[in-house]
Design a protein around this nucleic acid. Structure first.
Lengths: 205, 205
DNA sequence: CCTTAAACCGACCCTGGAGTTTGTTGGTTT
DNA sequence: AAACCAACAAACTCCAGGGTCGGTTTAAGG
């Protein structure tokens, strides 16, 4: 195989497997050998491509995680319909178990944020950027929804977005150690309920 | 000082300081010397009273954390008034910065849950028990609220409780690495809004 | 006092895991 | 085909941090 191609293949294998295992076991609870053993690679290979474990993870964030967030949570927001069903649907999809990985309920962003917030400021910043990207897009969709009459005019779009994000992060925490699909179901029901309350109220006098 | 008393004093100092530092820096990111140095105690003292770091933490959970959760989130629920303002108020108080520790926004349960969920099943169980204690009490208060006509009859109390807990956990995550008091404010506004939507609707026909 | 044991000290041990180094192989270039 | 270098192997270094252990201090009882 061509050198350059082989290199990219190895880097890709490392990143995918890394994200997979980091998601399941957490960053600090995973050692490099856990990843390398499964790929039948050596320390030498790893440190040939990345200068540290931290560097490796940042690479994962900026390629795979950003891409996932974009595909699952941001791209779907690009619409002119009623925002609420769209948001609800994207969140529901983001909470679905990864295909092939039963029990790993989608979306690791929240878990990583918590893991790094007290331990590694640099990585935290990268993760926060991703969240903010989501937040900005949510807010802008909500504002558009207001203009289009889907959302009550008096609502604070930043507040709604923050609330959506907070509840999403939190349900991930709960799903990690309870009956996940049940928790998810209850959560989505109430989120829908909350969304309903954001509609413009018909005026009864 | 009497031996038995001195022993209890030392154990108490260890636990309080331990919870303090664990809360700020996280369990795995704190080493025993961090705690012992501040108290001017030695490894010997520590291992005289606790058989391991893990044992130490479990002790903290079962004494201090349970007590805090109870005082902040459960005891206030013991009321016959409208549940929603009560719950809102208890959550608001639980999110207040700790006195003396600027920037440590109350309530560490959520952070610890995430930290341990992938690393230590035993400690996770102890923490989950605490959350469940909260959940059970929330549900029972909500059900009472239904009977008393404060909450719409068609609502799923378990769902509402799960949703409250999830959003609470999540906002803690967000507060850890954004403008905390602003995030808190936005969150509480929306929580209030959600609570309003749970009231029985007057019947317009 | 004098003994005993609880409370505590602090040097040491030991393991896990990140990162380094030295060596090997096989593709690429001239 | 000879030289060269990217891609990898694997043994090694190094150190943070949990846990141990023999020794020392202190308070309680005879």
């Amino acid at each position: 195989m061509e050198k350059n191609l082989k290199s990219r293949v190895t880097i890709n294998r490392l990143c995918y497997k890394g994200l997979d295992i980091f998601t399941k076991k957490g960053y600090y609870n995973t050692n490099l050998d856990d990843i390398l053993k499964e790929l039948e690679l050596s320390k030498g290979a790893f440190y040939h491509h990345f200068k540290s474990k931290e560097d490796f993870f940042i690479h994962i964030v900026q390629s795979l995680i950003v891409q996932k967030v974009y595909a699952l949570l941001i791209e779907p927001l690009n619409t002119h319909e009623d925002p609420m069903p769209i948001i609800l649907d994207s969140i529901e999809k983001a909470l679905e178990p990864n295909k092939g990985n039963e029990m790993v309920y989608g979306f690791m962003l929240a878990d990583f944020l918590t893991e790094f917030s007290k331990r590694n400021e640099e990585i935290s910043r990268y993760l926060k950027d991703v969240v903010q990207m989501w937040e900005v897009n949510l807010v802008s969709l909500l504002k558009k929804g207001k203009v289009d009459g889907y959302i009550a005019r008096h609502l604070d779009c930043e507040g709604v977005a923050a609330y959506i994000i907070a509840s999403f992060m939190g349900v991930r925490t709960l799903m990690a150690d309870k009956n996940a699909s049940q928790t998810k179901y209850l959560y989505l029901q109430q989120l829908k309920h909350y969304f309903n309350s954001l509609k413009p109220q018909p005026e009864y006098i």
